[in-house]
Computed example of a mutant assay.
Amino acid sequence: MPCMTRAERLAAILELLVGAGRVDVDEAAEQFGVSTATIRRDLDHLADQQLLSRTHGGAVPNSTSYDLPMRYKTIGRHPAKAKIAERAVSMLWPGCTVALNGGTTTVEVARAIATADALHSGVTVVTNALNIATELTVRPFIKIVVCGGVARPQSYELVGSLAGDTMSQLTTDICFLGAAGVDPLGGITIADEAEAPVNRVMVTQAKRAYVVADASKLGEVAFFRICQLAEITGVITDAAADPALVAAMRDSGIEVLLA
């Protein structure tokens, strides 16, 4: 196995925990190519964060392990997400206003904005994601607008009526929306009922709205609908996207851009 950073290993341990229902110290040490002492320290650290419960020789999930904070989720398909982000940022221009919700792909978009030389004369980012706001605040050429609301520790998104009311007063040039599912019939969906209404306002208040989602999200339908497919401008995904799903989305009248 390639050498992992500690953050990557912690995320992998949590994913293993949720998937298998337990983590054994000896097995994890062998899987991740580190010592048993290292795994024990990792498990103790995660237990201190109340993300699992320690047992003799390992760990088991606790009540929060099934809804993990984003900082502990590995960014699966990272090269695909980075390409999607690069394609999204190529659509921006100096002086534009762009809305971003929370999510691993929109975090990549935010990072691409921060390093885009073409935008260094100024850009405004509107977001309800605290981690994106924190990451971009240090960039002097980026103006950050953050709504109020109640913070969700799992995604760092601000939600609730205050967040929706604030977003409803703003008009952005373009919105890049992360989602759990993108389906021709099911629409744009997400797993959390509190995030969906705020995300919906972000879409309706943008002059153009694109879902940024890697191929694994296409054809998936999560529990709560943000909007129907026809309500967005397009989808930016990667080259691994199912051609049949791409064709179905294009037939519905939206753009599908392959990064």
Score class of each variant (00 low, 15 high):
Gly76Ala: 14
Gly160Lys: 13
Pro243His: 07
Gly58Val: 05
Met70Leu: 11
Ala213Lys: 02
Leu218Ser: 10
Leu136Trp: 09
Ile226Gly: 15
Ala82Leu: 15
Leu16Pro: 03
Met167Asp: 02
Ala99Leu: 12
Thr237Leu: 14
Leu119Thr: 08
Ala47Thr: 08
Arg40Phe: 01
Ala133Ser: 10
Ile75Gly: 11
Ala82Asn: 06
Leu14Cys: 01
Gln205Leu: 01
Thr204Ala: 03
Phe32Trp: 09
Lys81Pro: 04
Ser53Thr: 14
Leu92Asp: 01
Pro140Val: 12
Asn101Tyr: 01
Asn62Ala: 06
Ala180His: 08
Ala80His: 11
Gly253Leu: 12
Asp192Ser: 09
Ile144His: 13
Leu218Lys: 11
Gly181Tyr: 01
Val126Cys: 02
Glu30Arg: 11
Ser53Pro: 03
Ile132His: 01
Gly219Glu: 10
Thr134Cys: 15
Val25Met: 04
Leu119Asp: 10
Met1Leu: 11
Met167Gly: 02
Tyr156Trp: 07
Ala88Glu: 13
Leu185Asp: 01
Arg41His: 04
Ser252Asn: 11
Met91Tyr: 14
Ala191Asn: 05
Glu220Ile: 14
Lys217Asp: 01
Cys175Thr: 05
Ile254His: 06
Asp26Gln: 11
Gly148Trp: 14
Ile113Cys: 06
Ala163Thr: 09
Val98Ile: 00
Arg9Ile: 14
Arg9Met: 02
Ile142His: 15
Pro61Asn: 09
Ile113Lys: 04
Leu68Thr: 07
Val126Ile: 14
Val138Asn: 00
Ala239Gln: 09
Leu258Val: 10
Thr204Glu: 15
Ala248Glu: 12
Pro153Lys: 13
Leu257Asp: 02
Arg22Met: 06
Gly219Phe: 04
Thr64His: 11
Ile13Trp: 08
Met70Glu: 06
Thr124Trp: 02
Asp251Gly: 11
Ala7Pro: 12
Thr134Gly: 13
Thr189Gln: 14
Leu177Phe: 08
Val203Cys: 01
Ser90Ile: 12
Ala180Glu: 00
Arg139Phe: 04
Ala20Leu: 06
Lys81Gln: 06
Leu52Gly: 14
